[in-house]
Amino acid sequence: MNPTTLHPDLRFQFARSGGAGGQNVNKVATKAELRFSVRDSALLTDEERATLTEKLANKLTTEGELVLTHQTERTQLANKEKVIKKFDRLIARSFEVQKPRRATKPSKAAQAERMDTKKRRGDVKASRRRVEE
């Protein structure tokens, strides 16, 4: 089937879905596949392109293309909407800036509790040893 286009950078293709579904599965191409070329996108700046390439490295093809699919719905339109939502969430998550982690120390009470627990555990194990006569 010919790919349909929503935006020049987003390409859709449809194919037959796998799995259960009766005759509908064998007749109708409902599986939606979205392709987005990170490398060639006119929407992205060089910085954004580098960020996506780094964060989505395991999801990109060798040509720098992001391929997402959805096939759980019974209609082509529903699968297309779901794959667009999946794409939006993935891109939004990729551009979120994580706040830097600040190293913290355990409190004195937490350290004391840990030592007490270790001591108690050691005593339990020591009590299991054979008693010498």
Rank of each mutant, 00 (worst) to 15 (best):
M115S: 00
V124Y: 05
A92T: 10
T4S: 09
E132M: 06
K85N: 15
A109H: 05
A20V: 09
K108V: 13
A32M: 04
E113S: 05
Q111F: 03
L52E: 14
M1W: 13
L43D: 10
P8Q: 07
V25G: 07
R74S: 06
L44H: 01
K80D: 02
P8W: 00
R89S: 15
L6G: 05
R101P: 03
N2F: 13
G21A: 05
D9H: 07
F14Q: 00
G122R: 11
E48T: 06
K59Y: 04
Q23H: 09
K27W: 11
R130V: 12
R11Y: 01
R39I: 03
G64P: 08
N2M: 10
P100E: 09
G19H: 02
T104Y: 07
F14I: 01
D9Q: 10
T61V: 03
G22S: 02
F87C: 04
R89E: 15
M115N: 01
T30L: 00
K105P: 00
A112W: 07
R16L: 14
E81V: 13
E47P: 00
S107A: 09
F14S: 02
K31E: 09
I91L: 11
G64H: 07
V67H: 01
R39C: 03
E96P: 01
K27M: 13
T51Y: 04
E73F: 13
F87W: 06
L6Y: 07
L68E: 01
R49F: 12
R130C: 07
K86E: 13
T69C: 08
A78S: 12
R39A: 11
L43M: 14
H70S: 13
L66D: 08
N26T: 11
E65Y: 05
T51A: 14
E33Y: 01
